[in-house]
Computed example of a mutant assay.
Amino acid sequence: MKDLKVGVYVCRCGGNISDYVDCDRLRSEASKWPGVAVARVETYLCSKPSQDTIVEDVVRKGLNRVVVACCTPRMHLATFRSVMERAGLNPYLLEFVNVREHCAWVHGSNREAATRKALSLLRAGYEKCLELEPLEPIVEECSRAALVVGGGIAGMTCALELANKGYEVYLVERKASIGGNMAKLTKVFPTLDCAQCILTPKMAEVGRHPNIKLLTLA
C-alpha cells in the first residue's frame, strides 16, 4: 500500500451525473482513503483540459494508479487508457467506474440514495485498483481462414463476403446440397422476389469461388 499513489477523478458529465449524485461528496470521501494522493471533480473529465490535468498529476505527484468515475467504459475506456499512456503509465493500471448509467440515470429520483450507491461503486473501483497489475498486449499470428457452419442463404452470403476479402473459407453443410430453407420457397418477403432467382446465383458462385471449400454431408 505504501508504494501506491492513487488518483481519483469524478466527472460531473455536464450535469448528467452531478444533477443526481453529489460529486463533491464522492471526492471528499475518496480523498480520505489510504494511498489516494489526489481526488478531483471535473465538469467534463473526457475534455482535453481534464485529460491534461490527469497527465500532469501523474507526472508531478507520481501517481501509479488512476480511478475515473464517469460514464460508460464503452464510450471512453479507450480515451482514458490513452491518457494513461501519454502520462507514461501502463493503460491497465486504470480502473473505470460507471456512475452515470449504473447510478445517476437509474436512481435520479433519490439523490441521497444515488450518492450512496455511487460512493459504494467508487469504493469498489478503488479497492480493485489496488490489485491491478500492468499488462502488455500479446501479438499472435492468426490464420486467414474461416469456418462457416450452415449452407443456407445466410451461410452462403457470409462465406462469399469473407472469400471476397481474401479469406480461405470452409463452408460446412450437413445436407447433400446447400440452399437451406430458402430452396423450398417460391417468393421472399417483403418484395415477393423469386426465391430461386436470388438463391441459385449464390449457390453457383459459392461452388466456383476459388477461396471457398464446400463440405456437404458434414
Score class of each variant (00 low, 15 high):
residue 31 S to V: 07
residue 41 V to M: 07
residue 170 Y to R: 12
residue 10 V to W: 02
residue 167 Y to H: 10
residue 24 D to I: 13
residue 208 R to Q: 14
residue 46 C to K: 05
residue 79 T to F: 01
residue 108 G to M: 13
residue 203 M to F: 01
residue 156 M to I: 06
residue 5 K to C: 09
residue 208 R to I: 12
residue 61 K to H: 05
residue 136 E to L: 08
residue 161 E to F: 06
residue 210 P to Q: 08
residue 167 Y to F: 13
residue 80 F to P: 01
residue 88 G to E: 07
residue 113 A to R: 12
residue 35 G to F: 03
residue 74 R to E: 12
residue 173 E to H: 09
residue 131 E to K: 13
residue 41 V to G: 08
residue 138 I to L: 15
residue 148 V to T: 09
residue 118 A to H: 08
residue 176 A to E: 14
residue 109 S to C: 06
residue 218 A to H: 13
residue 82 S to W: 07
residue 136 E to I: 06
residue 182 M to R: 14
residue 56 E to V: 03
residue 126 Y to D: 13
residue 81 R to L: 09
residue 185 L to G: 04
residue 197 C to S: 07
residue 4 L to I: 11
residue 122 L to I: 00
residue 163 A to P: 01
residue 184 K to M: 15
residue 74 R to Q: 11
residue 208 R to E: 13
residue 49 P to V: 09
residue 181 N to S: 04
residue 83 V to G: 04
residue 101 E to W: 03
residue 194 C to H: 00
residue 166 G to T: 10
residue 43 T to E: 12
residue 17 I to E: 06
residue 163 A to E: 08
residue 17 I to D: 05
residue 27 R to S: 07
residue 165 K to S: 11
residue 81 R to D: 09
residue 117 K to A: 04
residue 207 G to N: 14
residue 4 L to F: 02
residue 32 K to E: 13
residue 12 R to V: 06
residue 178 I to Y: 03
residue 194 C to Q: 02
residue 51 Q to K: 09
residue 20 Y to V: 00
residue 112 E to T: 14
residue 194 C to L: 00
residue 92 Y to W: 09
residue 98 N to R: 01
residue 116 R to V: 13
residue 120 S to Y: 05
residue 151 G to L: 05
residue 21 V to E: 02
residue 2 K to C: 01
residue 20 Y to S: 08
residue 181 N to H: 07
residue 19 D to F: 01
residue 123 R to W: 11
residue 71 C to P: 03
residue 97 V to N: 07
residue 83 V to N: 05
residue 116 R to D: 15
residue 37 A to G: 14
residue 89 L to I: 05
residue 162 L to G: 09
residue 138 I to Y: 06
residue 171 L to Y: 10
residue 199 L to A: 10
residue 169 V to G: 01
residue 25 R to I: 05
residue 200 T to V: 15
residue 175 K to V: 06
residue 109 S to N: 08
residue 144 R to V: 05
residue 155 G to D: 09
residue 60 R to N: 15
residue 187 K to V: 13
residue 39 A to N: 02
residue 202 K to V: 03
residue 170 Y to L: 10
residue 187 K to H: 14
residue 148 V to N: 08
residue 40 R to P: 13
residue 97 V to L: 06
residue 39 A to T: 09
residue 205 E to A: 13
residue 216 T to H: 02
residue 212 I to G: 02
residue 83 V to E: 03
residue 135 L to T: 07
residue 141 E to S: 13
residue 88 G to N: 07
residue 110 N to P: 01
residue 59 V to R: 15
residue 164 N to A: 04
residue 168 E to K: 11
residue 57 D to I: 04
residue 79 T to Q: 07
residue 170 Y to H: 10
residue 24 D to T: 15
residue 176 A to R: 12
residue 61 K to P: 00
residue 161 E to P: 03
residue 68 V to H: 02
residue 157 T to I: 05
residue 179 G to Y: 04
residue 48 K to M: 11
residue 93 L to R: 02
residue 196 Q to N: 14
residue 64 N to T: 01
residue 126 Y to C: 11
residue 34 P to W: 04
residue 114 A to I: 06
residue 73 P to R: 08
residue 162 L to K: 11
residue 214 L to W: 03
residue 119 L to W: 01
residue 15 G to C: 05
residue 101 E to C: 01
